[in-house]
């Protein structure tokens, strides 16, 4: 079976001014399957954007290989099966939203009737239908971001590579994006997105990778992370606004006590250290490892 995204021993070294060398990627390897939503987590400057730019053929790796849908990323055809949303996207601002999507569809060689149908569908989905005749110049940041999403969906690719897809969106927009991602997952597509906000990952991801300092530190299933490390439970009862915080060891006992007291327990919530803690721990670990 072909992995949707396959990265092997990828290295990238930038040559900076005055002969300084910055090793942005130090040999990362990663496999992402079809039907998977994959979160690419890392602090700023960890190498997320560099990885994505290599996948999109915007920059060249120093060594190692990367392929999307089995095609080497250095070949323009590999991008035929990718929907890409750049970080803080910017589009030809003299075009209208509709013209821009037609331009993109043209580059993908989509037939006219299909293009018209899809353009309408996605402009409506992303709430840009009323603004379709307006030049992008006058769009708000969120509108541009949504147009970018429409562009990634337009040609119905198998792989979605989204660089910080939630940035610049209001809560309604975020919810919409999450919904779209889950829908894509249902349809068996692969979604690979970078973020530094753990809550986004928690909501939609199957797996995640944490990259710090150009090295992938952890690759793990999100539900595994969620399963471990329940710190406490929050117990809600009827006729009581206050929820009780209960240590795991004392849970059984507490529940029994409450029942004896004639109170009805309505909800027991686990309180997890969660992804945030997991992420911070990984970053902290790395900082400790560093000799300097």
């Amino acid at each position: 079976m072909i992995n949707a995204i396959e990265i092997t021993e990828l290295m990238k070294t930038y040559r900076g001014k005055r002969m300084t060398r910055v090793e942005a990627l130090q040999g990362i390897s990663l496999k992402v399957c079809a039907g998977e939503v994959f979160g690419f987590l890392g602090p700023n400057g960890a190498g997320k954007s560099t990885t994505i730019k290599i996948l999109m053929g915007l920059i060249r790796s120093t060594s190692g290989t990367a392929s999307v849908s089995g095609l080497d990323v250095n070949r323009p055809e590999s991008r035929r099966f990718i929907g890409y949303l750049p970080e803080n996207p910017s589009f030809y601002d003299y075009l209208t939203a509709e013209e821009y999507l037609r331009f993109v569809g043209g580059c993908f060689g989509m037939p006219g009737s299909l293009l018209s149908r899809k353009t309408e569908e996605y402009l409506k989905l992303l709430d840009l239908w009323d603004a379709r005749k307006r030049p992008i110049r006058g769009f708000s940041k969120g509108m541009v971001q949504r147009l970018g999403l429409a562009q990634t969906l337009l040609h119905d690719p198998d792989v979605y590579i989204l660089d910080e897809p939630m940035s610049g969106l209001d809560p309604v927009g975020r919810a919409l994006v999450k919904e779209i991602m889950l829908d894509l997952k249902r349809r068996g597509k692969c979604v690979f997105f970078s973020t530094h906000i753990t809550a986004d990952v928690e909501a939609v991801c199957d797996r995640l990778a944490v990259i710090v300092g150009g090295v992938i530190r952890k690759v793990q299933r999100v539900d595994e992370i969620m399963a471990q490390g329940v710190e406490a439970y929050r117990v809600h009862c009827t006729d009581d606004d206050q929820a009780l915080r209960v240590e795991p060891a004392a849970l059984r006992e507490t529940l029994a006590k409450l029942e004896q007291g004639g109170r009805k327990v309505t909800l027991v919530e686990p309180i997890r250290a969660g992804l945030e803690r997991f992420f911070l721990d990984v970053v902290k670990e790395c900082a400790a490892e560093k000799p300097v």
Binding site: M56, G57, L58, P76, E77, S78, R79, R80, I82, Y84, P86, N88, P89, S90, F91, Y92, D93, V104, C107, F108, G148, Q151
Partner: peptide
């Protein structure tokens, strides 16, 4: 204006 990101990433 970073148009290249969105255009060059097209196939």
């Amino acid at each position: 204006r970073r148009y290249t990101f969105s255009v060059i990433s097209l196939p």
